[in-house]
Design a protein around this nucleic acid. Structure first.
Lengths: 336, 336
DNA sequence: CTGAAAGCGCTTACAG
DNA sequence: CTGAAAGCGCTTACAG
């Protein structure tokens, strides 16, 4: 409970306990047992430390040990449940493993991404997880130049191990769900439309493949005009749809909850035929099941992905072939 | 681009540049101009540093300077837009001011909160912002014992300056909005019900006051049974409503988007009379405007709150009287 | 059972 | 214009 401008150090404690700084240090970091320091001294030191509100200067301690315990993560945004959950679970899991997690949000900006990575490395991060990074290879290169391990999450890279969702299978499953619902509820057989994302984005491209292939298996051809991958934002999704005024049944594969916002906005403003629309979304949001027309959503398995990522930490990279993690498909009740 | 187990240090650079470590250090941290080091040497050093992929060991640098640049923030959850936005904006604003932001998510667990605070202080955080903390005073006490500044955000404390939303006014405005809509759309005049949160929670209590007082001004008395502040979770909100089967018009003041989930679930399962229900929510979610029956939401002004908080950093505390920041009320189109 | 000493990588008054 | 030296707070072989 000392009040002062300077924080208490082991030297202060040593003086108060009438012991050497070495002994104090050893008591405080738990090595006193094997240094065979007397229980009596140990207890005295611990009591004094407690009374002084002492807390170790980790900066100094880790500098000496040449460690940092920091595992860094960069994440694009907290504006959907997916990344929010990733950040949250990452923190908990890292802490449970004795690391000090530092998560940085990089606003989907490649420059910020790289700056954040450099800063984390300056702070001696021991491992860096790049989540949904636009340019993961640039970060991996910088990391490896600094002797720091890097791992890609959500979006794969070539120069470091990657853990990503099995986008292809999940997209296929979702497409089949939408098709089934269109058939049973509307008596309509497709083809569906694909809304949101960018085709240059790996995940979008993979999902599109699943989308196409599910329909191909039913002998449904998808015209190019049905692919509306115009970007990541509610406005862009809404824009893509502005010229689309359905005159009968229609089905949409919505890529990400961000696009979903735009789709729902468009849907709610249709003056007629809204009940002839069905859609499903790749990504999860708790309000999803209450949105009219929404038949189901894909929830990515964040815990499993992170578990796989943590398994890679500290291990030498064997292969950069992405680890694929299955997603969960959540189907909603029929819109009768 | 050196590859090796050891990171490059200023000593390595000094050897390569044939200069002293002091000179290298000074070149690299920008003080070389005032130390009048020759431009020639400076440029040589910088070129070599670049070539070696050198990045300063901030741990060592800040230890020497007796600083850390770290500003810590603890936040309960990323499971709604409010806290997600707080974390995101905090990071950007901190970075813009030259700090190294570290955000920790504490799962609404008082113990985790305190542990996280201690850890942040061990890492020499210079200031700690406690957002929505269950026991902010405990954290303030620990901080002040370590000579670290602390600031409360979202939820006030007694032992450190607080920046919070003007819950009373916003709740009153929201209540008035719901009442107005009930009157014009349903021809019904209340009283409304209050759903979600805990009365022991400061914000809930304050919002409840605004809720009551708006109705009092219209001479509407609110029976105790209309106050259903049974906790923070979708299930609890849904549970509270399970026995409530309206046989006519009804209006709900929903406290937080977490409770909103429960309310919307309940609402969507009503077999009849759903169109006679109106509700508004204290907190913002982008899907809010698409939820049937939702007349409007309160959006807390995250930027302003954080601006006020940053103004306090580094300044000696003058008063612990909470700073109140106005909220924005977002009204949705009539559900005619 | 315990302490003196060296050193983690940096910075900065001080003395040329 | 530049370097040697001390020191930030800790840890840990080493020598009693």
């Amino acid at each position: 409970m000392e009040k002062g401008t300077k924080r208490t150090t082991i030297y202060d404690l040593a003086k108060l306990a009438d012991a050497s700084p070495s002994a104090v240090s050893s008591v405080l970091n738990g090595t006193w047992k094997k240094r065979r320091i007397s229980k009596k001294l140990a207890e005295r030191v611990m009591a004094i430390a407690e009374a002084q509100g002492y807390s170790v200067n980790v900066q100094a301690s880790l500098l000496r040990r040449e460690r940092s315990n920091i595992v860094g993560m960069i994440v694009p945004k907290y504006d959907n449940r997916y990344f929010g959950e990733i950040a949250e679970q990452f923190e908990m899991m890292a802490r449970a493993r004795g690391y000090f997690p530092v998560v940085t949000c990089t606003q989907r900006d490649p420059e910020l991404e790289f700056e954040a990575a450099k800063e984390l490395i300056s702070y001696q991060a021991e491992c860096l997880i790049s989540t949904g990074a636009t340019d993961p290879d640039r970060i991996s290169a910088f990391c490896s130049a600094s002797g720091v391990q890097s791992i890609n999450l959500d979006l794969p890279g070539n120069d470091a191990p990657s853990v990503i969702s099995d986008n292809y299978t999940a997209a296929k499953d979702l497409t089949n769900l939408i098709l089934d619902r269109c058939e049973t509820e509307l008596g309509w057989r497709g083809p569906l439309r694909f809304v949101g994302g960018r085709l240059t984005d790996h995940n979008t491209a993979t999902r599109l493949k699943g989308f196409i292939s599910a329909q191909k298996e039913r002998s449904i051809g998808v015209p190019d005009t049905h692919i509306m991958a115009t970007g990541y934002s509610a406005q862009k999704a809404a824009q893509a749809l502005v010229s689309f005024r359905p005159d009968g049944p229609a089905g949409l594969f919505v890529n990400s909850t961000i696009s979903l916002e735009g789709v729902v906005g468009w849907h709610s403003k249709l003056e007629s035929g809204a009940d002839q629309i069905r859609y499903g979304c790749f990504d999860w949001d708790p309000f999803g099941s209450f949105l009219p027309g929404n038949v189901g959503m894909v929830e990515q398995d964040v815990s499993s992905m992170l578990n796989r990522a943590f398994e890679l930490i500290g291990k030498p990279a064997t292969s950069n072939e992405p680890v694929l993690v299955p997603c969960k498909l959540r189907a909603f009740h029929p819109n009768s």
